[in-house]
Every structure is written in C-alpha cells, then in structure tokens.
Design a protein around this nucleic acid. Structure first.
Lengths: 242, 242
DNA sequence: CGAAACTTTGAGGTGACTCAAGTGACGTGG
DNA sequence: CCACGTCACTTGAGTCACCTCAAAGTTTCG
C-alpha cells in the first residue's frame, strides 16, 4: 500500500513549521515510501546502524532512548503521529541512539536519498525539515535542564505539559484530554528517576488536584497549577510560526 | 577589522564535517562579519531575543545555558574556537537559551541573512551547516543521558572526555593536555550537581590517578581509566566524516 | 482463566544537598 | 609593595530526596 494519505500528516506538520506552497506540498505527498505496522516494543532504529530510510510515524507513539554502561535507560524524546523521527540522522551517517515503538504503530519508510533530493529542489521544504530538527534540538536542551535541575515532581509535570501541548498542536486531542500511553517505567526512564518514585510522584500530583490518573488514563484537572509546578514555558517548543 | 583570517577556523571546521570544494571555501571566507572582543561573563545571546546575527567563536570559550524558575542554572553545552554558536537559531526566530563567554573571547558576528543566502547558493555548505546542528543535537542527547543516568563521578569524567576530544579534533591541544578553563561552579552547572560535590568528585578522580588538577589546570594522567569511569564512547560526537 | 506486566505500598540505606567556616590566589589601589 | 577585597577552592557536619529491596495488589491480554 502506498496511499498518499499516509504522508498527509507530514505535510500538515511541515506546514505548521514553515510557509509551504502547493508545489512544496505536492513534492512531500509524492515521496516514495513503504508502510509497516509494528507492535509495541519494536525497534525502528538501532544505535550503531546506518539508516538509509527516514521513519515517518503515521499513527501511534514512539520514543528515542540511549543506555548507559550498566543498562540504565534514558529516554530522550517522545514522538507522536506526524513526527518524522529519523531526520536527526539525515546527515549523520551512524545512529547514536535507539528508536522504539511504545504502542502499536504505523510507520512509513522514506528513502533518505529521496528526502535529500526533494530538499535540493524545494528550498522551502528543506528549510522546514531543517527547522524541524532544530526544534528537536531545542527540546533536547530543555530536557537537559529538566533532568539536571528539577525535582521529581516538576520533572514529571513538565513532561506532561510538553506532551499535552505537542498533542494539541498536532491535532491529537486537547491540553486537558489527550492520550499519554506510557507506563510508569517509561516516565521514569524519561525523567531519570525510578518507576517507584514516579508512582509516588503521580499520586502527589493527583493529591494537589492537578491531575487525575487511573490505569494509564490521565486527565489534567488544573492546567494552570500543573504549569506552575512544572515551571513550564512553551517557548522552547517553537510552536508558533517564526 | 574584517580580516578573512577570522573565518578560517570556521572553514576548517566545516571542512572536517563535510566535503567542501574551493568554491565552497571561498563562499565561507568571503562572508561579511564584524569582530568583537568580549570579557568573561559577557552574554552573546539572550534567551527571548530574536538574533539576526550568528556568533562565530574565533578564540576563547563559551557555554550555552538555561535557568529554571528558582534561578538554578543548567549549562547545556560548551563551545570552543571555530564553533558557530548560534546556528541553532538560524530557523527558529526566538532564542530559547543564553550564550555566555567563559573566558576572554573574540567573536565574529555574521548576518543570518548572509548565511542563508550562502546556503542556497552552495548546497554542500548548507549540508555542512545542517550537519553541524545535528551534531549539536546529538551532543544534547548524550547530555540528557549524562545528567539523567550517571552519578557525579561518571558525569564529570564524561564531560572531561568530551571536552578533551573536541579540543583535540579542533586542533586545540591533545587529549592529555588541553585547556579546561572552567570553575568548579561551571562544572557543577553543566553536570547538574553542586559545586561542593564537584570539588569532592575531582579529588576522587585525582585519587584514582586518572587526573591531576591544580588551580584550574587539568591533566589527564590515565585516559583509558577516565574513559572507563565516564562510560565514554565517542560515536555521538560524529567526529569522523560520515 | 491464568500468566505476565504493571502498579502500589512499606522500610531501611545512601548519594547529594545545605549550611557553615576557613584557606588560598589574584588584582587593585593607596 | 603591601593592605585589602573578591572570588574560587576546600573541608566538615547534619539533613533529605531518592534509591534499593521486597511483597502484595491490580490490570491486561492471550
């Protein structure tokens, strides 16, 4: 199946990132690709590999992670439908981290050569792609601050705020109601804390009335308070057009 | 003064990042710029500003940092001569972090418009610049792992290894002997630990025989051991050509 | 319906923090 | 050229956030 519809979410996302005309959109929608349905836990990129395709997440959720010498895992970002995950490796050659599906997901594999070719012909698309990688980098910087200088309560709240806003911007729910399909172990691996502490921390946030959680369903009850606890400022997401 | 020599370190660096021909090099060397000499502590980029120039570090050392709500500071990267610091904002519009000189430094301000224009005319240079920003992003990811999943000893050792290798690659000394012009407070702000603990940690690394330190002069005595303590693998620096 | 995976709760240990006081290096101005 | 202020480094002692280990619930899914 090579339905152009699979690329629509990419075109939509890049359209929110930069000004694209109809020829740009056409170039994106006519990229060649192959579709794959994957189960939770399936690896989409392996550290040390030399990817020749970019992975577009058509539906579902994924995360990037690295591991330390003793097997400790650190998730460095989450990804949602419309994210073109592997753009970070477009000009790097060798993958420096893993990418793994969190839920069942549908991905479209796009040859890197084709993306590079499109970038040469359509400068506006190239700029959008570059800008997308720069936004990723901005998010990494915020995560360094998050795990480096915030306590467990703020970290978890911050992750929630970021996920909520990104889902909202991608048209996948609102800030109050969105899917957060993570186990407490995922949240722990992303926040650099143990799952046990994440559990206590979520209870604490519920106790504050900022959040309601039950069986991996979360609902933000008090967005203002959650932002406050998280020290959340969305500038770093660069969601508004430049 | 608008001596082309100031741009030589940039041309050199980009040449190690991608294949550039003589026309590419010429394009880089003929960029317009203005030079400024700055003192330690001087800010080169302010969070919230809308930079219109890219800052090339001609000599000296600088760092990027963010602050949390209570004033806690997190350094997210260090920069050395030849680094074009502000490329991260080329397509972002608004600065999401501060950049500050650590030592006395010489910088060259290059108009972003000129860089974008050059990127359009010289695709190989554009690719080199893009690749440079992707390498930055890769380093951010490693830092998330570093502050998220390593103890103080490994963190500090890791920072040392990275700095050493980058200096070495930039032609600023060797792995054993290089300048690390940081106060213990800097090291603390970068590793997400307090300066007091950094002090004890450096003593500990000295005790292991991996390091000698005195009055902000550092020397690596046992590179193999330092790498081991740091869990250091240089893949993420993407130093070798792709 | 049963196994596996995830969540919850408790108790005791530890790495890093805060507070505090003192030492040493450096630069400046009288 | 010494007196003084400033900044960085050093060391100690008490405290706390988070960790580890452990075991019991609960949800999910084949």
């Amino acid at each position: 199946m090579t339905d152009r519809q699979h690329l629509a979410s990419l075109a939509r996302k890049l359209g929110t990132i930069a000004q694209l005309d109809s020829l740009d959109a056409e170039a994106i929608l006519s990229l060649p690709f192959s579709v794959e349905n994957v189960d939770p836990g399936r690896h989409l990129v392996r550290e040390g590999s030399r990817p020749s395709n970019c992975c577009l997440l058509v539906s579902g959720y994924a995360c990037r992670y690295k591991v330390n010498a003793v097997g400790g895992r650190q998730i460095v970002s989450f990804h949602i439908a419309g994210d073109i995950i592997d753009l970070q490796h477009l000009h790097l050659g060798i993958a420096d981290h893993h990418v793994q599906a969190i839920t069942k997901a549908t991905v479209a594999w796009i040859p890197m050569m084709e993306i590079k070719r499109m970038a040469k012909r359509r400068p506006a698309v190239a700029e959008a792609l570059w800008r997308d990688t720069l936004i990723d980098a901005s998010i990494f910087r915020e995560w360094v601050l998050n795990v480096g200088r915030r306590d467990a309560k703020s970290r978890v709240a911050h992750m929630l705020c970021e996920f909520a806003l990104r889902c909202d911007a991608a048209g996948l729910g609102s800030v109050e109601t969105f899917e957060w399909p993570l186990t407490q172990a995922h949240i722990g691996d992303a926040s650099g804390r143990r799952a046990v502490l994440v559990n206590r921390t979520l209870k604490l946030l519920s106790g504050l009335g900022a959040l309601e959680s039950a069986a991996r369903r979360y609902q933000v009850k008090d967005w203002a308070q959650l932002r406050l606890v998280a020290e959340f400022d969305d500038t770093y997401l660069h969601i508004a057009a430049a």
